[in-house]
Design a binder for these strands. Sequence first.
RNA 1: CGGGGAUUGGCCUAGCGGUUUAGGGCGCCUGCUUUGGGAGCAGGAGACCGUGAGUUCAAAUCUCACAUCCCCGACCA
Length: 422
Amino acid sequence: MRQSQLFTKTTKELPKDETSFNARILIKAGFADKLMAGVYSFLPLGWRVIDKIENIIRGEMNNVGGQEILMPSLQPKEIWKDTDIGPEDEKGWGRMREVMYQLKDKLGRDVGFGATHEEVAIELAKKYTHSYKDLPYAFYQFQTKFRQELRPKSGLIRGREFIMKDMYSFHKDAGELDDYYFKVGEAYKKVFDRTGCKSLMVEASGGSFTKNFSHEFQAISESGEDRIAHCDKCDFAQNIEIYKKDEIKKCPKCGGEIVVSKSIETGNIFRFYDKYTKAMGLYFTDEKGEKKPVHLASYGIGVTRLMGAIVEVHHDERGIIWPEEVAPFKAHLIELSGKNNASVRDAAGKLYNDLKKSGIEILYDDRDAGAGEKFADADLIGCPYRVVVSEKTLKENSVEVKKRNQEGAVFIGLEGVVDKLK
RNA sequence: CGGGGAUUGGCCUAGCGGUUUAGGGCGCCUGCUUUGGGAGCAGGAGACCGUGAGUUCAAAUCUCACAUCCCCGACCA
């Protein structure tokens, strides 16, 4: 993409109404824009990152047999009544009443915007699940979720509207569910490794479910809202409440030191077993002709939150340092042509076309801007590679290639650039 | 929802009762110049100083209410 065509621009100043690093830098660099507290637009650069993250998740979910669908955001109140966990006289908007956006439409019907989709998923499953032969299966979606947070905070980390990948799996019994649950847990680890946001699988506690039912994935970061106790050598980790109760000093897995760190919750997985399926009447007939409740587990990854978390983990004082698999572009091509140097401009333009033809995603800074501005923007936007074409490099028939996460640059021949970046 | 802070051209801000015709920087427009770390010169456009009520001869400036944003806390299947 030619940077001169990009409708967004970077700014020199940080926005005054954000203090979290991820929001400040993503807005400054033109990846996102805030419309209201906890509600952001994703601009061309940011949307490319979201797309990369989604594709990584999509691949791993497909690997464990997930089938991609899309459920509605707009939901009728009725589907929430049977899974309510509150007192009888408050039954209505159900277990999510505190955080759901709820309204009446023009016909006076109660509708809400989905904060999670277990209820919709079960309604859907009821139409297709009748026999043990129909089980197991899992489906997932990428969707905008709405949650009426009293206080959105930390930029993309806690918003009122955000993109989530949520998957729901349906099983004939608890044992089969458990096996699949941990298989998805492994898939989640791969997702977080690949996005460059390594997250520890932590037993969760608190909330409406006990620790036996759910796990969180936590990425260690100073800007996190959560705290976890974890081994400094292996991947053992505990929720802070459980850690305080157990008072362990050494890692039970490898004997390493236990340290407490702040962390960002990047994902969570829940085993509901037959709790909600029974309540909503999702049953199947087993081999013996007996009616049994379907067992349900659900699995969430906050996609936009993950983008924020990646920025929190991968940056320096000059800007973002995108991990390669989620970078908006693999390389940022900079021409330092001056006004009258057509040969630099031609060489850079040709290189841009060659790289594009080779399938390398490239952001080409063809703007009529000063060298300092171009370098500053390249560091800010944070593509993994920076390629500079200038009078200086052309004298040697070469270009300069520098990795964003390393000091020092190498000069390579014009012909070798495509191979170098492949 | 409790507590604290903030709100001034597109962005970052100065001004904190009268000398303000609201100043500067960035960005934007014109022209020239410049091109290896957010350049320079000259000219130009752009503001009901968050909203509403007060106080005062006089309000961006003081008072009250409200709204919005940020932070701490509570909350967060």
